[in-house]
Design a protein around this nucleic acid. Structure first.
Lengths: 243, 243
DNA sequence: CAGTGGTCTAGACCACCCA
DNA sequence: GGGTGGTCTAGACCACTGC
């Protein structure tokens, strides 16, 4: 087996193993080859194999038993979020087996709201670019997401920005920055009139609200957002490993 | 600096560094000593320091910048859950700076509900031990949690079990098992009458519901639970690193 | 007892940042 | 160019599992 060098050997190994699991080459519940076997087989060191397996273990894809072996998790019905990226609604919809699409509802420059001033550490009424979108799963509206970006950090006029991009690519492309980490707050709300309308909900059907702030490597806030998340449709599931 | 051997050097190092951060010995926003410096200072290898730092980075405690250094995250207002353990309400309450306590509402053996039969892979109407508790933060009720454990996996009569234990210790003590991982589903609900009463809520105030299933190393379900979580009081916050 | 994963070390080279 | 984190290697020893 040959491993190309360009992108992180560890990543290549974990991707390869994940692929073998998804394709059932390693069947659910079965034992993987030992770390040393894999290392030999792939021509990498055992440490590298271990990093790759550790990644899969934190995603819940694989279970490790000391003195025994590494097993494919048989409870894999689904595993979005957690390691996968709670922020990437396109990917979440894809994982759930549906066809994702985006509709841009509005894109406008307006003064920052109070909550945005605080989240983004702005001055009073600095302008932000507000991008509001609906994420569809098989043409059913699943998420109503609004994101606010300080106009000062955009490298292009907002009109020229592609509203279809996932938020991380948007940041890379138009803000020339990379997201280092993000903080999510989850709460339960009753949908307002607009949300009810867009997501086709009853007024008394509570939904999840995800409030996010993304930071760059300098620890400066890049973007904040608030999403109404129809978990009846998508499911919000976390896997936690107890290493 | 002397590092005792008994428990994982990596853990000791990350605990030590976390402590230095919390005590502001490493101030918010400041740069930590380099990996090599720390390795020398603590008398361990650089690889060990790196594992420890990696752990802190995934918790959002620390930011790493290639070619530059490792910095204390200045946005540390709070960071429960994610790495910390969403399941451990006592710890979450403690982290939020309040005094946690538990009241046992009911402890009973009853036939498994349909959802429990499915989650726990039981036979029809196998008996389960149902433990219902309220978690208080400074005497304000924050979480109403119900857990169901198959009676067949208890080593002691249910009456003799300590209802004050965190669920993982409960499992270790009374089921002689260790939790390998758990799966969380989060959704938004309107509280039923009992929940309204216990958590002192209005009928139209939506709350979070956490449904959990815990599995052991054999990938067998150990326990399932459903909790009503007052996020207005506790906050449900996740930190995601974008390595 | 042999085989597995868990931990740790020492040393190497690279990519990136900044003065 | 010098220092930093990012990656990888090779080899060692330990703890646990199951036969």
């Amino acid at each position: 087996m040959l491993i190309e060098r360009p992108k992180s050997i560890t990543t290549q190994v974990s991707d390869l193993l994940a692929e073998r699991i998804r394709s059932q080459e390693y069947a659910p519940g079965s034992r993987l080859p030992s770390e040393s076997d894999l290392a030999l087989q792939l021509g990498v060191s055992r440490a590298t194999v271990r990093s790759a397996l550790a990644r899969l273990a934190t995603q819940g894809l694989v279970l490790r038993k000391q003195g025994n072996g590494t097993y494919v998790n048989a409870h894999l019905e689904s595993f979005p979020s957690s390691a996968g990226g709670l922020w990437n609604f396109l990917r979440l919809i894809e994982f759930s087996g549906r066809e994702p699409s985006i509709r841009v509802l509005s894109r406008a420059v307006r003064p920052a709201l109070e909550s945005e001033i605080e989240s983004l550490a702005l001055q009073e009424s600095d302008p932000v670019f507000f991008l509001q979108r609906v994420f569809f799963a098989d043409d059913i509206p699943a998420v109503l997401a609004g994101n606010a970006i300080p106009v000062s950090s955009l490298r292009q006029p907002p009109e020229e920005c592609d509203g279809q991009l996932p938020i991380d690519e948007f940041i890379v492309r138009y803000c020339n920055a990379k997201i280092a980490y993000d903080i999510f707050d989850i709460c339960a709300i009753l949908p307002d009139a607009e949300t009810q309308d867009v997501l086709q909900l009853q007024a008394d059907q509570p939904i999840l609200q995800l409030r996010q702030v993304f930071y760059d490597g300098q620890n400066e806030p890049l973007l904040c957002g608030s999403s109404a998340y129809n978990e009846k449709l998508l499911g919000l599931r976390l896997v936690q490993s107890w290493s």
